[in-house]
Design a protein around this nucleic acid. Structure first.
Length: 449
DNA sequence: CGGAATGAAAC
DNA sequence: GTTTCATTCCG
């Protein structure tokens, strides 16, 4: 008995349905552009939508509702909105969708292939060949977008349509044709190397679809992806990434896809095209020689999260209070009032200043008293979903000790993180809880994705 | 509007 | 385990 599902809403492309595609800035915030359609591919809109620094304040977003917002009172968005309707909120894209969108954005410059079934196949082939590090980039990206999506749409809950009737199993297109499969792989590889697809491979698209000089690809996009035509590299990998040329000006990042700030190329026209991953992709074990550093885009150009105060309960007066869930109940569930920063600080007895951590990173003190910076789960783990950690653990929260001596109450003058001196008994995993991040974002304007 | 991919989320 | 739906836009 699925509650009020809308029935059989047709799947509809935004473009086909004349609904402006949602644009997301580099930080994953939705950017509402009433004239998205007319300006999306113009350089003006591109320039305007790119901000190398702090993202637009939430005011430009569908105002993440404040704790006083009436929308938090009792009335939850449990009703489903029809796809295609004005207020339908699409799901956040997963890693693969992001990747595929980016692939398309790259290929769009040189759209030898415009059949998206083929593009999806290529994306799939390529996806499965990505290294775990490369996939991690997209997974992290997806995670960021997911959190941003949660902030922008706190009421959102995925509500798929009722299952259709005994429909015949969705038939997977037979790709038994080995030649086609092979060709698909070849195209994918060339695509990932930034090569034009019409070198050596027979195009499958009709010539009418190949942009001519008279109808070129959108210029605002074409300048961002350089095509490498010769000496194909064997396989894309992190080690094969081209050095990132020195940047002197803010790049004009096209509004591409809906969520992507694609890997950036900003060099001479004959530079190689390779995936350019932001440096938060790097693992900590990675070599930090300058050559390696050059492989990545500037930190200023990537989304940065400023976690205002990693909440680290202090085990000063160990009177453990076991709770099933965070004391910060979601505002959309019970409490219409979220704690302020100060309340959080008071509650936990400390305040941290964290700078330039990855969105997924938290500094915490583990139960042994060691300070650690959590890192994002690697791809070997099943999922990034914070729910697993959340569900599988019982978080122990400790009442704060009012008499505790807390360092760093107001540390605007310092950028050095100050840690709680006391060991804590909260698993770092608990911090990955979506609701928790959401609440952080709600209460801290500086919380940036 | 189906399809083509992968993966998250809901059943 | 199964289904929908995120992306994209051609056919």
């Amino acid at each position: 008995m699925p509650p009020c599902r809308y029935s059989d809403a047709p799947r509809r492309s935004r473009r086909l349905s004349n609904i402006p595609a949602r644009n997301y800035d580099e930080d994953g915030f939705e950017v509402y552009e009433p004239e998205a359609y007319s300006t999306r591919y113009t350089s003006e809109s591109n320039d305007a939508s790119y901000s190398p620094h702090p993202p637009p304040p939430p005011s430009e977003c569908p105002s993440p509702p404040s704790s006083h917002d009436e929308q938090y009172s009792a009335h939850h968005h449990t009703t489903r909105t029809k796809k295609g309707s004005e207020d339908h909120v699409p799901r956040p894209p997963n890693a693969f969708i992001l990747f595929r969108s980016w692939l398309w954005e790259c290929q769009k410059q040189n759209p030898t292939e415009r059949d998206h079934r083929e593009i999806s196949r290529m994306a799939g082939v390529k996806w499965n060949r990505l290294s775990s590090e490369e996939k991690d980039y997209w997974r992290k990206r997806a995670y960021q977008v997911k959190i941003a999506h949660k902030v922008a749409h706190p009421e959102y809950r995925y509500a798929p349509n009722a299952r259709r009737k005994p429909r015949v199993q969705k038939k997977k297109a037979p790709r038994s044709n080995q030649k086609e499969v092979r060709r698909c792989e070849q195209v994918a590889e060339r695509l990932m190397r930034g090569e034009s697809l019409d070198h050596g491979l027979k195009p499958v698209v009709s010539p009418a679809h190949i942009p001519s000089p008279a109808s070129p690809a959108p210029s605002s996009l074409s300048s961002h992806v350089e095509v490498k035509v010769e000496s194909p590299q064997p396989e894309l990998s992190f080690n094969s990434l081209s050095p990132q040329p020195a940047r002197t000006t803010s790049p004009s990042i096209p509004v591409v896809g809906h969520y992507l700030q694609p890997p950036v190329t900003d060099g001479p026209a004959d530079e190689h095209l390779e995936l350019q991953y932001p440096d938060f992709v790097k693992s900590e074990e990675e070599d930090c020689d300058t050559a390696a550093l050059n492989l990545f885009v500037f930190t200023d150009d990537i989304p940065t999260i400023y976690l205002p105060a990693p909440v680290v309960p202090v085990l000063a007066a160990p009177t453990p209070v076991l709770k099933e869930e965070s004391p910060y109940a979601s505002p959309r569930v019970d409490s219409p009032v979220l704690p302020s920063d100060r309340e959080i600080d008071n509650y936990f007895g400390c305040r941290h200043e964290i700078h330039n951590l990855d969105p997924q990173q938290m500094i915490f003190t583990n139960s042994n008293g060691y300070q650690e910076v959590s890192s994002f789960p690697n791809s070997d783990q099943e999922s990034y979903s914070p729910h697993e950690a959340h569900q599988s653990q019982t978080t122990t929260w400790y009442e704060p000790d009012p008499s505790a001596n807390h360092a760093n109450v107001n540390s605007e003058s310092t950028t050095v993180p100050v840690y709680c001196p006391q060991p804590v008994a909260v698993s770092s995993n608990a911090i990955f809880n979506d609701d928790f991040l959401y609440e952080l974002a709600q209460n801290n304007p500086s919380y940036i994705y």
